[in-house]
Structures are given as C-alpha cells and as structure tokens.
Computed example of a mutant assay.
Amino acid sequence: MTHPTFGGPPSPWRDDPFLPPPLEPPPPDYPAIQASPEFADLRRRLRRFVFPMTALFLGWYLAFVLLAAYLPEVMSRRVYGTITVGLLLGVAQFVSTLLITTWYVRFARKRIDPRVAEIRRAAGQDTGLEDWQDVR
C-alpha cells in the first residue's frame, strides 16, 4: 500500500497513512532574538569574560616571546640544575592555558549556558542543555 499523494510506503508510526506529514515548526526569528535585551545581556556577559582574558593571555604570551628574543640571558638563567627561567615560563604558558580553559568552562556553565537555554526556549527551540547541564 502506498500513500496516494506522496507515494512510498505509509509511515509505520502514524495511525492514518493518508494524513499529510506533520508540519515543521517555523524557524526562530533570528533578527528578533538578536535585538532582544536577553541576547544583548548574554553577549555582554560573554564579552566581559572573553576580551579581558584574551588580552591578559596575549600579553603574557607576548612577554614570554619578547623575553626570549631580547633577554636571552634572563631566560637562560639556571634555577635548579638544568632547569632555566625560560623552561619554567614555557611550562607556565601551558598551565595558564589549562587554567583559562577551566575558568571559561565554569563561567560558561554558570553564566552563559542557562541564558542560552532561556533564549532558545523562548524562541520555541528544544535546548537539550538541561540533560548535560550538571555534568562536571
């Protein structure tokens, strides 16, 4: 048996194979979402974290590069055995990257993700964020 209008086999999960397929919900009104005060607040919160943290890390990285380029005697100073100031600062770069990533994940989980879920819910979109929100 095929559907008279749409062709193909009837859908096994529908009671009446001759009903038209369900309508898709309309897409979100992205310009309205972008113009909303909730979205502006979300962007403001994100920028307050991301821009200063980015400037801080770039400054820290630039200081490392400038020290290596213009003050090699400082970077090659031995601290303990064969461990130098440059090596310690290089390892500190990795540690600071991990710390910034951890801070951002916590910040996003507490301050960004709940707001995104609210905005998506208000736009009629399933967020799926509630399922993994408390996963640590």
Results as ranks from 00 to 15, higher is better:
residue 66 L to Q: 10
residue 86 G to Q: 04
residue 66 L to N: 03
residue 73 E to M: 12
residue 56 L to S: 13
residue 54 T to L: 15
residue 96 S to D: 05
residue 85 V to Q: 02
residue 65 V to W: 11
residue 49 F to K: 01
residue 108 A to V: 07
residue 82 T to S: 14
residue 58 L to H: 01
residue 51 F to C: 05
residue 73 E to R: 13
residue 107 F to Q: 02
residue 108 A to Q: 08
residue 86 G to T: 06
residue 103 W to A: 13
residue 108 A to D: 11
residue 54 T to C: 04
residue 85 V to H: 01
residue 76 S to D: 13
residue 58 L to D: 00
residue 91 V to F: 12
residue 100 I to F: 08
residue 97 T to C: 08
residue 64 F to P: 00
residue 103 W to Y: 12
residue 61 Y to E: 09
residue 92 A to E: 05
residue 107 F to Y: 15
residue 102 T to I: 10
residue 51 F to D: 04
residue 59 G to T: 09
residue 85 V to A: 01
residue 97 T to N: 09
residue 91 V to S: 06
residue 89 L to I: 01
residue 111 R to I: 01
residue 75 M to D: 01
residue 100 I to Y: 02
residue 84 T to Q: 05
residue 56 L to T: 09
residue 75 M to F: 07
residue 93 Q to D: 12
residue 67 L to T: 03
residue 56 L to P: 03
residue 110 K to L: 14
residue 81 G to M: 10
residue 91 V to L: 15
residue 65 V to H: 08
residue 77 R to Q: 10
residue 70 Y to T: 06
residue 49 F to C: 02
residue 67 L to E: 10
residue 85 V to G: 02
residue 96 S to M: 15
residue 66 L to D: 01
residue 103 W to H: 11
residue 104 Y to W: 13
residue 65 V to C: 08
residue 99 L to P: 04
residue 53 M to V: 06
residue 90 G to R: 01
residue 72 P to T: 08
residue 105 V to I: 15
residue 111 R to E: 15
residue 56 L to W: 11
residue 62 L to K: 02
residue 54 T to A: 10
residue 84 T to N: 05
residue 56 L to Q: 04
residue 52 P to I: 04
residue 71 L to M: 14
residue 52 P to E: 03
residue 82 T to L: 11
residue 93 Q to I: 11
residue 103 W to G: 13
residue 101 T to Y: 14
residue 64 F to G: 00
residue 84 T to G: 04
residue 92 A to H: 00
residue 95 V to D: 02
residue 91 V to T: 08
residue 110 K to Q: 12
residue 67 L to K: 04
residue 106 R to S: 07
residue 79 V to Y: 07
residue 71 L to K: 11
residue 82 T to Q: 12
residue 55 A to M: 10
residue 108 A to M: 03
residue 66 L to V: 14
residue 72 P to N: 07
residue 51 F to V: 14
residue 86 G to F: 01
residue 76 S to A: 12
residue 85 V to R: 00
residue 100 I to C: 07
residue 106 R to M: 07
residue 69 A to H: 06
residue 80 Y to S: 11
residue 69 A to P: 02
residue 53 M to Q: 09
residue 80 Y to L: 13
residue 110 K to R: 13
residue 49 F to Q: 03
residue 60 W to V: 00
residue 83 I to S: 03
residue 94 F to V: 10
residue 107 F to A: 06
residue 94 F to W: 15
residue 78 R to M: 11
residue 59 G to L: 13
residue 71 L to A: 14
residue 102 T to S: 11
residue 74 V to T: 07
residue 108 A to Y: 08
residue 72 P to H: 06
residue 95 V to I: 14
residue 49 F to V: 02
residue 69 A to R: 07
residue 92 A to S: 15
residue 60 W to Q: 05
residue 110 K to I: 14
residue 92 A to F: 02
residue 68 A to L: 12
residue 78 R to I: 09
residue 96 S to I: 14
residue 76 S to V: 05
residue 91 V to E: 06
residue 103 W to M: 12
residue 80 Y to D: 12
residue 66 L to H: 02
residue 93 Q to S: 06
residue 88 L to T: 05
residue 78 R to F: 09
residue 98 L to G: 15
residue 97 T to G: 13
